[in-house]
Design a protein around this nucleic acid. Structure first.
Length: 482
RNA sequence: UCCCCAGUAGCUCAGUCGGUAGAGCAAGUGGCUGUUAACCACUGGGUCCGCGGUUCGAGUCCGUGCUGGGGAGCCA
């Protein structure tokens, strides 16, 4: 069969024309070949060379195409017309291979491809920074554009993509609808830290002059979102159960292994739901994500339990099987005070729990995920519902081993007068929130929600200790090279 | 932002008491083998992070800056 005359042949077309038995050949992914239950004749594979092992009259080529963690072993005999060229193939080179999928004669793999043709699509010079050996995470961060080609980061970013999909699946199965909350917002006081300013004004124009913002693009101060919660509340009070899942920005000068300036957050919001139902959802979500990666990302996850965190399977099984401990803040403080532990900062009512306190509760005392709830109102933001004691608010934090806080949420204050009073106490400018208060004027109902850091979830699921290693191109203070 | 640690070959690291630079892997060359981060031999490869100081002499000691990491705070 001939292609139309107008078709401009690409190198791949030439290759296929030269070697194909019947046109046109379609590329098969390594993932599908390795899952084959029978031999196949004349398949086309495209990918990158991970390593080459030479014998006297043939070479083994390990080809990876990113579809799965495993490589495909290609046997290239010296009868191939370009065998001399193949003999010089370097790690990282791109290849197209045509051959038969046959049972492997060696140990270690079930299938291999006996090449009838190998085309070098691109030869990688010996300066290719990735070698066929272990690199440190620190070095790989310095070549973030290439690290997805390693076993570990390939597995990481497949798991990240699949987990994101599983989050959507979870919420859909629970009757939630996805809300696209704005990336650029005007709200600037949610107790969520420093903001990135968004402006089209020339530098310096706004210095010391609040009125200058009236000349700005939006006619007001604007910034990148720190939370989609307020938007989510509005949609929850219309659609019932909704969630946001998108990027979030914090301009905090945080230099830790679990903070990034740009991260993804999942924020469900539920009408007619109190704090207890909120905790139920958070627990169900985390359990489902652990089940998901164990069941549906098994091949990639295995790499992490082998090389990153030997206790990973135990941790995930524990998360799935154990009920999350639920204790009030006052009980948590009492446990910490009775613990006999020496803390850098003593636990004391009215102060927020320190990282060391959270980790003691979840890693030492309970050895399970812990939900701490009903915090003193003075350490929590204005929108959290004041409890009947008048002293605490219906807040909850989910703490998991190693990561610490993975979820923070609350039942929202649905009573207009109390919300207004709390805004006053917290020094919030009411004028900017009249639209928000409208939700309490018209058909206000009990509702709740939380925020879950997607990267922290991935850290928990894979055992990876640094947030910069679970996001392809991390943004942290002083670092935006890629 | 604060506290601590580190920076030596392309990568991972060793370097004793202050005495003039080492290994493995990678690269190049040759050999061998249905191999599994293949193996064996040989070869090339250094601004010891920068600057300043102490010393006859500094990779090593001191000061300072930069970069990276860990911890804290902020939080998800």
């Amino acid at each position: 069969m001939r292609r139309p005359a107008t078709h401009h042949p690409t190198p791949c077309d030439v290759f296929e024309t030269r070697y194909r038995k019947r046109p046109p050949m379609k590329r098969t992914k390594v993932n599908d070949l390795l899952a084959s239950d029978s031999p196949l004749s004349q398949v086309l594979v495209k990918g990158w060379l991970r390593t080459r092992r030479d014998s006297k009259t043939f070479s083994f080529l390990e080809v990876n195409d990113g579809s799965c963690p495993a490589n495909l072993q290609v046997v290239a005999n010296d009868t191939l017309p370009n065998y001399e060229e193949l003999r010089k193939l370097t790690t990282g080179s791109a290849l197209a291979v045509v051959g038969d999928l046959v049972a492997s004669g060696g140990k270690g793999q079930r299938w291999e491809v006996t090449a009838s043709a190998v085309e070098v699509l691109s030869l990688a010079p010996e300066t290719y920074p990735l070698q066929k050996k272990r690199h440190t995470d620190e070095y790989l961060r310095s070549i973030a554009h290439l690290r997805p080609r390693t076993n570990k980061y390939g597995a990481m970013f497949r798991i990240r993509a699949d987990t994101a999909w599983a989050i959507h699946r979870f919420f859909r199965q629970h009757g939630f609808r996805w809300l696209h909350s704005p990336i650029i917002t005007a709200s600037d006081c949610e107790g969520a830290g420093e903001l990135f300013r968004v402006t089209t004004l020339p530098p310096g124009v706004t210095a010391g002059d609040e009125n200058a913002f009236s000349q700005d693009f939006f006619g007001a101060r604007a910034n990148l979102t720190v939370s989609g919660q307020l938007s989510a509340e509005m949609l929850a009070l219309a659609l019932g159960d909704v969630y946001t899942f998108g990027p979030t920005f914090r301009a905090e000068n945080s230099n830790t292994r679990r903070h990034a300036a740009e991260f993804w957050m999942v924020e469900p919001e539920m009408a007619f739901c109190d704090l207890s139902g909120n905790m139920d959802l958070g627990e169900a979500l985390i359990k489902e994500m652990a089940r998901f990666v164990m069941a549906e990302c098994a091949a990639d996850l295995e790499l992490f339990s082998r090389f990153v965190d030997p206790g990973l399977t135990t941790t995930l099984t524990g998360i799935i099987e154990k009920a999350f401990v639920r204790i009030r803040y006052t009980e948590a403080v009492a446990i910490l005070q009775r613990s006999g532990q020496e803390f850098g900062f003593p636990a004391q009512y009215g102060l927020d729990l320190q990282t060391e306190h959270e980790r003691y509760l979840t890693e030492v005392h309970f050895r399970a995920p812990v939900i701490v709830y009903d915090y003193p109102k003075q350490i929590k933001p204005f929108y959290m519902r004041v409890n009947d004691d008048g002293q605490t608010v219906a807040a909850m934090d989910v703490l998991v081993p190693v990561i610490g806080e993975i979820i923070g949420g609350s039942q929202r204050e649905e009573r207009l007068e109390i919300l207004e009073a709390r805004m006053g106490e917290c020094g919030i400018d009411r004028a900017a929130y009249e639209w928000y208060l409208d939700s309490r004027r018209y058909g206000s109902v009990v509702h709740s929600g939380f925020g879950m850091g997607f990267e922290r979830l991935l850290m928990m699921l894979t055992g990876v200790a640094n947030i910069r290693d679970v996001i392809p191109f991390p943004r942290t203070p002083g670092d935006i090279m890629f």
